[in-house]
Amino acid sequence: MKVSGFTFLRNGTLLGYPYIESLKSLLSVCDEVVVAVGKSDDDTLERVRSIGDARIRVIETTWNEDMKDRGYVYAQQKMIAQFNCSGDWAFYLEGDEVIHEEDAVKIRAAMEKHLANPEVEALVFDYHHFYGCPDLVAKSPAWYRRAPRIIRNTIRSWAPDGLFWVVMHQNKRGRYPNAALVGCPIYHYGHVRSSEKMNEKIRQVSRYWNHTPKAHVYNQIDASILQPFHGKHPAIVQPWFQDYAELVFTADPQYRLSKREKRHRWQMKVEKLLGRDLTKKHYRLVAA
C-alpha cells in the first residue's frame, strides 16, 4: 500500500499557520507528500523545502486572483496537489491541522483495513477545533464534528471547496463519498493563532469569497460552546504555541448572541433530546 499526503499553501508564515508542524505530522503516515505552494510574500516555499525530506514534492503555483466565487480557488489548489498524488490513498491535511504522533499507526492501519474494499471510498476523522487558546475546544453545529480527509486515489473525485469531495459516478450527478471512520481526531489550530495573524488572514482571503473583511476579535463568541480540552496535544505543535498562538482567553460577558448562534443553541438542545448528530455530513458511512 502506498499513501500520498497532499496540501496547498500560500503565505503560511505571514498568516500564522503551523504548516511546518502539519507537514511533518503528515510525513509520519505518508510515503510521499505533495505540496502546492502558491506564489507568496514570505518564506513559505523556502521553509517547506528546508524540511529536507525526499518524500516531499513541491509544485509551485499561481493563484487565480479573479476567482472570487465561494473560495473555489482553494478547491483549484487542492486539486492541483491531489492530481499529482500517486498512492492508493490520498490524505489531505490543511496547513492549520496536525496529526497526533500516537495516532499515526492507527491511521495507517485504517487504510490497510479498507484497501481491498472498494465500497469504502473515503476515511473520516473526528475533530478537535481549538478556539481562543490551546486549552479550549469549540463544539457546536458551527464547527463540523467529522470530515473526510482521506480519499481513495483510484476513483473520480473532485473538490468543490477545500473541505470535502464529490465523487462522480457513471457520469451522473456527483455524490458524497462512501466512508468509514478512522477512529481518531485531527487537531485544528487555525483559531488559536495570534489575533494579529488571524486578522491578516481574514484580510487576505476575504477577496476569494467576495466578502468585505471584518476585524476578528476572539472574545466575541457564544462562550457556552467552548469546553475545556483534557487531552494531550501533539508534541510537534507545542513549541508553536509559545511563539505564534494566543495562550489566554476570556470571553466577553456582555457579548450578544447572533441569530445564527441562537439557532445553533436550539439545534444542540434538539440533538441532546434525540441523541442524534443533526449537523451536515459530507460523506455516507458504509463501514465501521
Rank of each mutant, 00 (worst) to 15 (best):
F8T: 11
G12Y: 01
T13H: 06
T13C: 07
Y19T: 02
E21R: 11
S25R: 04
L26W: 02
S28M: 14
V29F: 12
V29I: 15
D31E: 13
V33A: 15
V33I: 14
V33R: 11
V33E: 11
A36Q: 11
V37Q: 06
V37K: 04
G38E: 03
G38Q: 04
T44I: 06
R47M: 10
I51H: 00
G52C: 12
G52P: 09
D53H: 09
V58H: 03
I59W: 10
N64V: 11
E65F: 08
D66I: 04
D66R: 08
M67S: 04
D69N: 02
D69K: 03
Q77L: 08
K78H: 15
M79V: 08
A81G: 14
N84K: 13
C85Y: 00
S86Y: 08
G87P: 09
D96C: 06
V98M: 02
I99R: 08
E101W: 15
E102T: 01
A104I: 05
V105G: 08
I107K: 03
A110V: 06
K113M: 14
H114R: 03
L115V: 11
L115Y: 14
E119M: 08
E121K: 02
L123N: 04
V124N: 04
V124F: 07
F125M: 10
D126P: 09
H128I: 05
F130M: 04
Y131S: 02
D135K: 14
L136V: 04
A138I: 07
K139C: 03
S140V: 04
W143S: 05
Y144R: 05
P148L: 13
T154K: 02
P160W: 04
P160H: 05
D161H: 11
V166C: 10
V167H: 10
H169C: 13
N171F: 13
G174I: 12
Y176P: 09
N178V: 03
L181Y: 15
V182K: 12
G183F: 13
P185F: 01
I186E: 06
Y187G: 09
V192R: 07
S195P: 06
K197S: 14
K197M: 09
Y208H: 04
W209K: 05
P213M: 06
K214R: 14
A215M: 12
A215P: 08
Y218T: 00
D222S: 01
L226Q: 00
L226K: 00
Q227M: 09
P228T: 04
F229R: 01
H230C: 00
W240M: 07
A245E: 00
E246G: 02
E246C: 04
A251V: 03
Y255T: 03
L257N: 06
E261S: 09
R263C: 10
V270Y: 05
E271P: 05
R276Y: 03
K281Q: 12
A287T: 08
